[in-house]
Design a protein around this nucleic acid. Structure first.
Length: 874
RNA sequence: GGGCCGUUGGCGCAGGGGUAGCGCGUUCCCUUGACAUGGGAAAGGUCGCAGGUUCAAAUCCUGCACGGCCCACCA
């Protein structure tokens, strides 16, 4: 008879609850993957490894929570869950941060210093300390380890049900091994080649970049109208925004049908300033409508130039160097050509060593002085290609790079993409459009430091030159290797860099070349075949839409190239978090709000609730009001559960009641409520199967409020102190099952409050210590459906609503007595009302004698008359 | 220029051939046996515009406008 209610907590204190359970889940190793379970009972997630670049933001909270909801649902279905976390810590973002944090710069020629330790530098240091590659990499690791601890703490606090034993870092040994192995495998399979050719080049970072990392930015430019002379007489005007490339001009082209220039084809033009002699050639890609219709081809202004240069086998006059400065050239030597060498060299000396932009201004001045510039500059807006992380325009620079052949396989890759189920479906279009628009093979080498090196060396020839035609590959068994510090087989370290010896490939791989292997990294591809078979392909790839062209595309590509397989069955594409004016929440815009701060202010459950409200693929507005709504729901769960348990405990304390189960549900109102719940269970499961977690939440939430506001109100008197034992049993049996069902339905979204409430009673009674391993509620828990539907419940609610409205209109409290209740309507409705009448009059404080029911051929009519006093005598 | 998504009460969203829904906000009311971090009620929309299909269109089709995103455009 001890009232257990005293054991129930009085107030909802989210922070206490959440920290308590987060710790418990960790110490119980609640979310570990079980390798002994067969594949078909396992659900495998290919989690995105967040870039380790300082801090996680609300966009991360948003999308990672959404994945966790799907995962928790699968776990409750009884699936063994493989849900790893990785850190994408290699690559440029880390290098840049380390450079700023410690004021250091990598200088690969320097020797390693044992006793050197990175120390955080004061804010504005101009001089960067030059350190060896190895020291630099150590600083990188130090920085990322610290961040990764912070990241993990946040994920745990947010309640992500990750198996932390599966953690990996993309620059760690395991990933280097897989990544290098992938390189070797693709090389063997003929998908990889190395070639020296013009590639997209970032002059700031001094590295090649891939098409996928390029973005267009609108920039101001100016058309310079420049007069060219024609050999043997005549002239024409070219309109260009890049006059600094005049020295790199290799040809002049116009459309073959362009009457204005037809007569010039076959002749040579003479460039101003340099008197360069270049052929005038017809070319289809010249647009008569643009500029003056005749244009110069330079090495290299754009992709069209590269294509033309390659197709026509023209000479290469590469005047822009790797750093973006103009390199020295001699117009007296091939491949340069000039009618007046000395004047040309003198003119070029003026711009040699300048950056392209500076050279542009200088060339304009020189053209003006020489009289070759016609008229004024004409301003224009133009799209300029930039590396997405860079702030200087990309140039085409001819360098030796490793490539993966994707252009030859567009059709196969499209077919692979179509085998994946995309959520939402239209995201497949993004994938297809990207693949169709590809125009370069995937350049995977980067002239950087913090990354996975290529497992390759080159023989050094007698002259000290490298023999690129005979690369020496590391054997698979030796991986991972660092060709800068490891020796190839059959060589000694002393032979490094010496004629007859070897030299290591100095490049590192594109970070995507590694992260495109996340399914294989998790499955231990090439290392543990049994495990690989169990974890590959994965079930679910969650990711954001802006990286469909990189991460999704490259992952599909690699899986196809390695094993002719798709990497995962489902791709769930999340939207963005945007500001109220629909801008993407960027770091600068979202600075004021950190996930940590919001967790303090609200709760993990509230943040998760906000995440859960948005559909896949749909942007969501950052709105703290929604956190409040989530908080309110959690609190309601707390209070309504407490109240329900009090009813159960009161009934248990009554010896005339005994125990109960769903077979005891006998009252029409209860049966109707169960019928309503049955519908809910069916559609919740359906929606979750389609990864439509937001639809589940919406529906469950609305049913839950209906439960609290209506069913609980209607049934509480009968449950609490009903004199009829069987009616009372019916009530408590319904209440108990309903609460159990709601808690489980809400558990994927609000894992903390539901776990807390579950622990009050059901952890024991149901034999599932954690709600997150309790079975997902389905119709099978319910007795076979009777002829009952929700009608009786609807009837009760309708009448109760009328009574409430009348009391509100009369400004009376909800308890105010009703002295007359007349209900008229169709016979079926009246019958329904009759069946639930006892509950209605009890909830509405109506005396039974005051009720008058009339069946008639007319819409439902309810008349409520209130008493003149509140009925309390004293 | 091509593609995709969206346009529903002040705001945020759901619905998707058959009498317009939810939440927030607003107004009014209520200290009812868990919950005032609460409860009840009310006001508020001819579902972007124009055509078409249909007995019936917010819902399907066509066109347009506006917003967003992706891609292309670099003389």
């Amino acid at each position: 008879m001890t009232p257990m209610s005293e054991e129930l907590p009085k107030k909802y204190k989210p922070k206490e609850i959440e920290i308590k359970w987060a710790e418990k889940w960790e110490s119980d190793k609640e979310y570990r993957y079980d390798p002994s379970v067969p594949r078909e009972n396992t659900f495998v997630v290919d989690t995105p490894p967040p870039t380790v670049s300082g801090s996680l933001h609300m966009g991360h909270v948003f999308s990672y929570s959404q994945t966790d909801m799907n995962v928790r649902y699968q776990r409750m279905l009884g699936k063994n869950i493989f849900y790893p976390m990785g850190w994408d810590d290699n690559g440029l973002p880390t290098e840049r941060r380390v450079q700023n944090q410690f004021a250091i710069q990598c200088e690969p020629t320097l020797p390693y210093k044992e006793d050197w330790n990175p120390t955080p530098a004061p804010k504005k240091v101009r001089e960067l300390e030059k350190v060896s590659r190895k020291n630099f990499l150590e600083a990188c690791s130090l920085q990322t380890e610290e961040d990764e601890k912070k990241y993990e703490a946040l994920w745990r606090r947010l309640g992500l049900s990750i198996d932390w034993d599966q953690n990996y870092s993309t620059v760690g040994e395991h990933c280097r091994k897989i990544s290098q192995n992938s390189f070797l495998d693709l090389y063997k399979k003929g998908f990889i080649y190395a070639v020296e050719s013009p590639v997209l080049w970032d002059t700031t970072f001094q590295t090649a970049v891939a098409q996928a990392e390029v973005e267009d930015r609108e920039k101001h430019g100016n058309f310079h109208d420049i007069r060219f002379q024609v050999e043997g007489g005549g002239d024409f005007i070219i309109s260009t925004t890049r006059p600094e490339l005049l020295a790199a001009c290799i040809a002049v082209v116009a459309h073959p049908d362009d009457q204005r220039y037809k007569g010039l084809f076959g002749k040579n033009a003479r460039t101003p300033l340099y008197d360069g002699i270049v052929p005038i050639i017809p070319a289809e890609h010249a647009d008569p409508e643009k500029g003056t219709g005749i244009m110069m081809i330079c090495t290299f202004g754009d992709v069209a130039d590269v294509d033309f240069w390659r197709a026509e086998k023209m000479p290469m006059r590469q005047i822009i160097g790797r750093s973006g400065r103009l390199v020295p050239v001699d117009f007296g030597e091939e491949p340069y050509k000039s009618g007046s060498v000395e004047a040309a060299n003198a003119a070029y000396k003026e711009i040699e060593g300048l950056y392209a932009k500076q050279a542009r201004t200088k060339v304009k001045e020189m053209l003006e002085a020489s009289g070759a510039l016609v008229g004024e500059l004409k301003p224009t807006e133009q799209a300029v290609k930039f590396y997405e992380k860079g702030d200087q325009p990309l140039e085409f620079v001819s360098t030796r790079q490793w490539f993966i052949k994707i252009l030859d396989h567009k059709e196969e890759l499209l077919a692979q993409g179509r085998k994946v189920q995309w959520h939402p479906e239209f995201m497949l279009k993004r994938f297809e459009q990207w693949v169709e628009g590809l125009n370069q093979d995937w350049c995977i080498s980067r002239q950087r430091f913090f990354g996975v090196p290529f497992p390759v060396w080159y023989p050094v020839l007698e002259e000290g030159e490298l023999d690129f035609t005979n690369p020496i590959f590391a054997p698979e068994s030796a991986l991972p290797v660092d060709p800068q510090s490891d020796c190839p087989e059959g060589f000694k370290e002393e032979q490094r860099g010496k004629p007859g010896g070897f030299a290591g490939d100095t490049d590192v791989m594109d970070t995507w070349a590694t992260s495109s292997l996340t399914p294989q990294i998790s499955s231990h591809w090439g290392l543990d075949e049994k495990r690989h078979q169990k974890l590959f392909p994965a079930d679910l790839r969650p990711q954001a839409h802006e990286i469909i062209r990189t991460w999704a595309f490259y992952t599909i590509t690699k899986s196809w190239m390695h094993e002719k397989a798709i990497p995962w069955h489902h791709a769930a594409i999340s939207g963005w978090v945007v500001t109220p004016d629909r801008q993407k929440m960027s770091k600068s815009k979202g600075k004021a709000v950190t996930p940590e701060g919001l967790l303090e202010e609200y709760s993990a459950d509230a943040l998760r609730y906000w995440s859960a409200r948005a559909k896949l693929g749909q942007d969501t507005i950052y709105d703290e009001n929604v956190f409040k709504v989530g908080h309110r729901l959690a609190m309601k769960i707390f209070n309504a559960s407490k109240f329900t348990l009090m009813q159960l405990q009161a009934a248990e304390a009554d010896s005339s009641i005994g125990s109960w189960n769903l077979a005891d549900v006998s009252q029409p109102l209860d049966k109707a409520w169960i019928a309503r719940m049955r519908t809910l269970l069916g559609s919740a499961s359906n929606s979750f199967e389609a990864f439509q977690y937001s639809a589940v939440l919406l529906e469950v939430e609305s049913a839950f409020w209906d439960f609290c506001d209506n069913y609980l109100e209607l049934v509480k008197n009968r449950a609490y102190e009903g004199s009829d034992a069987s009616a009372r049993k019916s009530a408590v049996a319904t209440l108990e099952w309903t609460l159990k069902a709601f808690l489980r339905l809400l558990a994927p979204f609000l894992p903390y409050i539901t776990e807390e409430v579950w622990s009050w009673r059901f952890a024991k009674s149901e034999g599932a210590a954690s709600i997150h391993k309790a079975p997902w509620p389905t119709e099978e828990e319910l007795p076979l459906p009777s002829e009952q539907n929700g009608t009786d419940f609807d009837a009760a609610r309708t009448v109760l609503d009328k009574i409430r409205a009348e009391k509100a209109a009369e400004k009376k409290s909800i308890k105010w007595p009703v002295t007359s209740l007349r209900i008229a309507g169709e016979a079926a409705t009246i019958e329904a009302v009759k069946r639930v009448l006892n509950d209605v009059i009890s909830a509405g404080n109506v005396s039974l004698s005051a009720v008058d029911l009339q069946a008639e051929e007319a819409p439902l009519k309810v008349e409520v008359v209130l008493g003149t006093s509140d009925g309390r005598e004293k």
